[in-house]
Design a protein around this nucleic acid. Structure first.
Lengths: 180, 180
DNA sequence: GTCCGATAGTTGGACGTCCAACTAAACGCC
DNA sequence: GGCGTTTAGTTGGACGTCCAACTATCGGAC
């Protein structure tokens, strides 16, 4: 990760650029929006840092976080099989992102594409034995090297999840199902 | 944004897929990592949602959030001028990302590239009058349409910034300066 | 039964991010 | 002074994301 490389080549603890930006926001009379600006900017930066850590753990396994999410969705499904569209709506990503991820997973032999038995428009994605193996290894690595070592107290983790849950709900996340 | 389009085409309030994943994590005996997994996943999803909102507000102005951040860094600098390397370290992004953003900003006439007066390796990025105008409009739009309307209480915003600050610090964020 | 709108997936293109590799210039050490 | 190391910035490629546009199929309304 880029920040780490900079950090490692010897640096003193620097300023928090987000705290600095917040101060400037208030100085310019945008106090009403300062907290929101700080929250959005923090979110962007934190996501970038965490994603980089996750990707570095997954890289040796030949997958990315996006593909890992697809694999876990399949692992947790009853038959190890899901339509592309369901994957997209669970992960809240564009259909093209699903196509992309499945293409690469299929190329690596971790999933297969099967025709949907009743809907000829749809495509079923099925996880392979090798896919399950990789998913297991990835989960073990992520649990021990990232999820279990975020540097936050359990209380902070829970608070973070709760706050982000409210934010996601307001922004229109939360799986949607077709009416009826 | 994709999720919004889905939401709007009529759906009932669905399940929180992250809460569901947390339950599965615990069932599989990974309770130690469950909270971290939930935090990381929430962070990814929330960032995606918020970024999409930000981008949709900035799109009419012809810039992206990455380019907006560069512009604001220049606006807040004394001379409206910064070396590429400083931009990269403030934003904690790879040098190629700075090159990319500056290329596009320059193409739009919002910044200029100037030779550094004393270091012939370096390049100064200077904001133009048009760049300042766009930055002002973008800030007004973001403040009123995103930062001021995140759907979170002030208390939650502050807590979020604090928690993410600790997370960033642990992950190696916070601007680094060369020793001495 | 037919037809038109909705849905499932794909392709091609834009964008931001990273990495690897490269050139040019500055720095430092002897 | 000279040479090796570090730093600044660029190019080319990989990846994930989105949008626009397209094909194929399903399904409901008439």
């Amino acid at each position: 990760m880029w920040a780490v490389a900079q950090e490692q080549r010897g640096a003193e603890r620097g300023l928090d650029t987000i705290a600095e930006a917040t101060r400037l926001w208030r100085e310019h009379g945008w106090s009403d929006a300062a907290a929101g600006m700080a929250a959005v900017t923090s979110l962007m930066r934190a996501q970038q840092l965490v994603l980089a850590r996750v990707e570095s753990v997954l890289r040796p396994l030949g997958i990315t976080f996006a593909r890992y999410e697809v694999l876990m969705l399949l692992v947790f499904s009853q038959r190890g099989t899901l339509p592309m569209s369901v994957i997209g709506s669970r992960l809240q990503v564009h259909p093209t992102s699903v196509t992309n991820a499945v293409d690469r997973l299929q190329g690596a032999g971790l999933v297969e594409r099967l025709p949907h038995p009743t809907d000829r428009r749809a495509t079923l994605v099925a996880i392979t034995d090798e896919g399950r193996t990789v998913a297991d290894k990835a989960t073990a690595a992520l649990n021990s090297e990232v999820f279990g070592r975020l540097g936050l107290a359990e209380k902070d983790l829970d608070a973070l999840v709760g706050i982000l849950s409210r934010l996601r709900e307001d922004a229109g996340d939360f799986a949607t199902r077709k009416p009826r």
